[in-house]
Nucleic acid binder design. Structure first.
Length: 645
RNA sequence: GCUCGGGUAGCUCAACUGGUAGAGCACGGCACUUGUAAUGCCGGGGUUAUGGGUUCAACUCCCAUCCCGAGCUCCA
């Protein structure tokens, strides 16, 4: 065994230290500044804590606060600090998992009663004490037997322990009184946790399994810098202000009413205008892109879903069947449709198709109904009556790549360019349980990836995340304040053409089976509008604004002139309204609160010479007086260009 | 669906350990005729989510149901 270990640093320089040296020793050898700043280290590609002593030569990159890999380490330690504080105040609490997550960390506890906000405040103070005590994190490798003894009082940990494979290294971490079964890594000591906050508590199933016991989860977050924590809390506050449920009420866009039931949306005039404009935008684009429009029934004999295979597989998400009543066979049951694909398949099947007809592209902006679990419903983001901008493309496998390429184009036009969303792409490949042979899957997955590559789009791969009937592209978009939302999907489907026995006649005069592409650009209008409300914080771009111009006469003397302006605007297809009540200040405040893009003020001066004082949303007192014709021309141009603010 | 917390006027919220509901905004009327984010006065509006129970008395306590919220699970 060698007497030294060689550490290769990022600049390729090599440090030799005695065998058994830890990464902290390495940091010390490099310099006191780094010793202080070091949080953890990447050793041969793996994040390790500084107590780690490599047994052989390694390459090392020491992580400081500035490295993105360091934050999860800090947060993971934050979870342990939380558990330390909880155990101090509630020694009987069982401990579950406590990992870092995207914006912070959580820890799950098994206790008799849920935590109150006062409990959380007490835990936060307790954490402060643990931080001040600056307890070192000690890592220790143990045998399975030892671990069983150490966690004899922690049934949840024992369960986890038994799942570890025979070859897996079992490690425990101790800080002060708190011991946890944990893989690590951790920061050197609890004192590193300076800027943290507990956010809220909630129930969570043990192992995420709804049949298991409910634990009490506490969410918190931690940052290296005070300013980062403040910025994060600020962002949460900003997100709250943008809540589409609150804005939906304030801007009178939609309502969900108890008498009608949860998850069912009333579109008030202004919200309906949004929905109509978006439907039209996608329908216009579809027609220009070689799609046909179709309309299909909202209810159907449930036989359709037996053929499609949705029954009984999808039954939990469907509304129960109903019978048509008198005069019809009681056994013939009807269902509202939870998706359009089988309907479109039947239109394809309604006539003989030639290879010359392909691809057949059928689109429909249609309501579908899904019996979502009540607890999952959420404003416009999760509803039971959904309006999908759905389309199905029937084509040969050879044509699929081009078709998907065109779908990506549409997404680019209608989502990225139109609203300024950044898009993230992911390809989900064959799952374990699947239909069709490997060669076809191979080809299908390659088709999706090639289409993305051809468009120059970078993407992630979700191995095994595809549907049983085919692989798919999932698109997420990032909104104005950096949140990710599930957006469009493009799916290849071998299954439905099979089940409906879809065929076209090939050039060889023989029947062939087409493939189907499912795609939705906005996904559902409900969810998309919900995200738009939050993305724009209710201040929609001019082309989409339900009310584009509010016309404000200064006094009654200009009412006539103002009415003429409204008529002039409406004549040019602009959505304008007059408000001649109360004081001007009051009306300006109202228009500002309603986030109307333009205010057109008509006073005595403007009325006499036929001009208008134009005030842009958010521009405060900066107004521009211009001839009415010019105002109109500007509006028309801005709408046509669909520019964003 | 599960855990916990809620439900008071159109909206946002008050009402001590049970004593019989109040404000602002909004709405209606009147006055004011307004030059860039709230003019003043007056008025109408509630079987306190629904149904049961305890009590002399229930917004308040108990039970059930419905709905909402934070999460979990699931998902467009």
């Amino acid at each position: 065994m060698s007497q030294t270990v060689r550490f290769t640093l990022p600049d390729q320089s090599v440090r030799k230290l005695p065998a058994g040296s830890t990464l902290m020793d390495l940091a010390r050898a490099i310099g006191p500044g780094l010793t202080k700043a070091a949080v953890a280290a990447v050793v041969d590609g793996e994040v390790r804590d500084l107590m780690y002593a490599p047994a052989r030569d390694v390459s090392v990159r020491i992580l400081t606060e500035r490295d993105s890999e360091a934050l999860p380490v800090l947060r993971h330690s934050g979870a342990h600090v939380l558990a330390t504080a909880v155990r101090e105040l509630r020694p009987e609490a069982a401990i579950g998992f406590g990992p870092p997550i995207e914006d912070g960390f959580y820890y799950d506890f098994g206790v008799d009663a849920p935590f109150t906000p006062e409990d959380l405040a007490a835990f936060e103070e307790g954490m402060q004490r643990v931080v001040e005590a600056d307890m070192p994190f000690e890592r220790r490798r143990v045998t399975r037997e030892e671990a069983r003894e150490l966690f004899a009082g922690d049934p949840l940990k024992l369960e986890r322990l038994e799942e570890l494979g025979p070859d897996e290294e079992i490690t425990v971490y101790r800080n002060g009184p708190f011991l946890d079964l944990c893989r690590g890594p951790h920061v050197p000591s609890t004192g590193r946790l300076k800027h943290f906050k507990l956010l809220h508590g909630a129930g969570a199933y043990w192992r995420g399994d709804e049949r298991r016991q409910m634990l009490q989860r506490i969410y918190g977050t931690a940052f290296f810098k005070e300013a980062d924590l403040a910025a994060y809390l600020n962002r949460l506050e900003e997100a709250r202000k943008r809540d589409h449920r609150v804005l939906g009420k304030q801007l009178d866009l939609f309502s969900i009413q108890e008498m009608i039931g949860p998850g069912l949306v009333f579109w008030h005039p202004k919200g309906a205008r949004l929905k109509w404009l978006l439907s039209r935008a996608v329908e216009d684009d579809n027609l220009r892109s070689g799609y046909e429009l179709v309309y299909t029934p909202n209810i159907t004999r449930e036989e359709l879903f037996r053929v499609s295979g949705h029954l009984p597989l999808y039954e939990a998400n469907q509304f129960p069947a109903m019978s048509a009543g008198t005069g019809e066979d009681e056994d013939v049951r009807y269902r509202v449709k939870p998706m359009n694909c089988p309907m479109h398949a039947l239109i394809f099947k309604a006539q003989q198709r030639s290879y010359r007809d392909l691809p057949v592209r059928l689109s429909e902006v249609a309501n579908v109904y899904r019996n979502e679990k009540s607890g999952t419903l959420h404003g416009l983001l999760r509803v039971r009556e959904l309006c999908m901008d759905d389309a199905h493309i029937f084509c040969t496998l050879d044509q699929a790549e081009d078709e998907i390429f065109l779908c990506l184009d549409q997404v680019d036009r209608l989502v990225r360019a139109a609203f300024g969303f950044e898009l993230d792409f992911e390809v989900s490949t064959r799952p374990a349980d699947r239909l069709g042979d490997d060669a076809t899957w191979e080809r299908a997955e390659a088709i999706l990836m090639r289409a993305l590559e051809r468009k120059g789009i970078a993407f992630q791969i979700d191995v095994g995340g595809g549907a049983f009937y085919g692989p798919k592209i999932d698109i997420q978009f990032r909104d104005a304040i950096g949140r990710l939302w599930q957006g469009p999907t493009i799916q290849l489907d071998f299954q439905l053409p099979e089940r409906f026995e879809l065929e076209y006649v090939g050039s060889d005069n023989r029947p062939h089976r087409p493939v189907m592409i499912h795609r939705a650009i906005y996904g559902t209008l409900e969810r998309f509008i919900g995200t738009l409300i939050e993305h724009f914080a209710g201040a929609f771009p001019l082309w989409l604004a339900p009310e584009q111009v509010r016309v404000l006469p200064i006094s009654e003397h200009q009412a006539e002139s103002a009415r003429e302006l409204v008529a002039q605007l409406e004549g040019a297809g602009i959505r304008a309204r007059l408000n001649d009540r109360d004081t001007l200040s009051y009306r300006i405040r109202d228009a500002e609160l309603q986030k109307i893009p333009y205010m057109a003020v008509v006073g005595e001066k403007e009325a006499t010479v036929g001009t208008v004082a134009v005030r842009r949303r958010g521009a405060e007192k900066k107004q521009q007086v211009m001839p009415r014709e010019e105002f109109l021309a500007r509006l028309v141009e801005e709408i046509a260009s669909r520019q964003l603010d």
